[in-house]
């Protein structure tokens, strides 16, 4: 009898605190709680940069490119400009970083806190599942690409947070839905470990409005990676449409024999647009996860 009442009280207290304490204070509290660990683990994180990447890391393990402007939020050119600035800063912080064997790369340890003083500009971001304008908004494009490169390059994902909203309908989508990672300094990080027998190198570059990322290695790997999705569907729920899928990753050796097939992520998020009938009919027929 007593335990449920305590839980209810705890929930009520939490709700009251959430309403009474401003969001900025709550965010700083979360950051402060993670700070001691953050400082102590900093020396262990990947940070070293490589002088001559082309010579020492000739093999491209994975690459991807995506345009900075998709013309999705028309009239919001200020936000698009801000996003381009933020992406360029984040990409420059990640470019040339070497991840040694068994070392962990942390997005936030490299990119740092997005603030005006450090050159970041206002851009579109998600706050508690709602679109909003914030300093450093749009950096998720870099973390999304980093996540994709890590998956395709055979890295081991240590920490990743999915987006809570699907903001825009697909336009010429080349990768499965949900292959992204949201980041929020320093509470939600993207981290991966290099389990390969050699160090890997990150290359990021923004040129002609296109963000390009590469994961390079000094020697060719003895495996292949395939990232694919399962059970992709749109479903109508009482509070709107949701989109769901399961991301899987398959490792095989060079002869094509399967080494490992693992579930990487289960994505389920609210959709901010009305899916077309084609999407809902065709894709909702997909089966669930294995």
């Amino acid at each position: 009898m007593f335990a449920p009442r305590t839980n209810r009280l705890a929930v009520l207290a939490r709700d009251w605190l959430r309403r009474a304490v401003p969001r900025s204070v709550r965010v700083e509290w979360v950051r402060l709680r993670r700070l001691p660990r953050w400082i102590l683990e900093a020396p262990l994180m990947a940070r070293a940069r490589v002088e001559d990447p082309r010579r020492d890391y000739p093999i491209c393990l994975a690459w991807h490119e995506s345009p900075l402007q998709r013309g999705l939020f028309e009239g919001e050119t200020e936000l698009e400009r801000g996003k381009a600035i933020n992406v360029a800063i984040a990409a420059s912080r990640l470019d040339g970083v070497r991840v040694d064997r068994f070392q962990v790369l942390s997005y936030h340890h490299l990119v740092g806190r997005p603030s005006r003083r450090r050159g970041f500009a206002p851009g579109l971001e998600l706050h508690a599942g709602e679109p909003a304008v914030g300093i450093g908004g749009g950096c998720c494009q870099v973390s999304n690409m980093l996540y994709l490169l890590a998956l395709r390059g055979g890295m081991k994902i240590v920490e990743r947070h999915r987006h809570a909203l699907d903001l825009f309908p697909d336009r010429a989508r080349s990768i499965p839905f949900g292959l992204g990672a949201t980041v929020f300094y320093n509470a939600a990080d993207l981290r991966f470990e290099n389990p390969l027998p050699f160090p890997v190198l990150l290359r990021f570059d923004v040129r002609d409005g296109v963000l390009r990322g590469e994961l390079r290695a000094p020697e060719p790997p003895d495996f292949r990676v395939e990232v694919y999705q399962e059970g992709h569907r749109f479903a109508r729920e009482p509070d709107g449409w949701i989109r769901e899928n399961w991301i899987r990753r398959r490792f095989s050796d060079l002869e094509g024999n399967e080494l490992r097939d693992e579930l990487v992520a289960h994505n389920r998020c609210r959709v901010c647009y009305e899916p077309t009938s084609t999407q809902t009919d065709e894709e909702s027929r997909a089966a669930g996860p294995r």
């Binding site: 055979g154 081991k156 389990p195 990753r249 490792f251 050796d253 080494l259 490992r260 693992e262």
Partner: peptide, 11 residues
């Protein structure tokens, strides 16, 4: 060894 290698990515 092959089976162990597949576990290198286990979390």
């Amino acid at each position: 060894i092959r089976r162990l290698r597949a576990l290198l990515w286990a979390r």
